[in-house]
């Protein structure tokens, strides 16, 4: 049996400003359907994708937070957040809609090395 390739998706963009967050999520869910192991990393403005209490009704968009909350249902549980990005924005992991693992900027290279493929959004 051939081994499935592992995928690391690095998210760097905030939600709603453009389609990056939705496209990234689409890829993540698709990988999960093919039973490829998926890891997500959120850094920079992308941490705002995970923030609780999003209400995008007035800008006619689908709630990114609701889609991300479903990740455990797709067996995507390896979710990393760059700790510095939270600090810079005055946030902590308790402000996020999912349990995540906090990592330092200096550990990102390790994460990249651990995966077969890396996609960035």
């Amino acid at each position: 049996m051939s081994e499935k390739k592992s995928v690391l998706i690095i998210n760097q963009k905030s939600p709603y400003g453009d389609a990056a967050a939705r496209e990234s999520l689409d890829i993540a869910l698709t990988c999960s359907i093919f039973e490829m192991p998926v890891t997500l990393l959120f850094c920079g403005d992308a941490i705002f994708q995970l923030l609780k209490d999003q209400q995008p009704g007035k800008i006619q968009q689908k709630k990114i937070e609701a889609m991300l909350s479903a990740l455990p249902m797709y067996d995507i549980t390896e979710i990393y957040v760059e700790h510095d990005s939270l600090i810079q924005n005055g946030l902590t992991d308790e402000d996020l809609c999912l349990p995540v693992t906090l990592i330092d900027q200096s550990s990102i290279s390790q994460l990249i090395n651990l995966h077969d493929t890396v996609l960035t959004f």
């Binding site: 939600p15 709603y16 609780k52 209490d53 209400q55 995008p56 007035k58 924005n89 005055g90 946030l91």
Partner: peptide, 30 residues
């Protein structure tokens, strides 16, 4: 507009008003 980024606007004169659009704040939960 986040409190954490207040330093950004420290250089602007006192009589420059700062606004943020409600719908976009709500969308992002901030």
């Amino acid at each position: 507009a986040l409190d954490a980024h207040q330093g950004l606007f420290s250089s602007i004169p006192d009589n420059v008003a700062l606004f943020a659009l409600e719908a976009d704040l709500e969308a992002r939960g901030i």
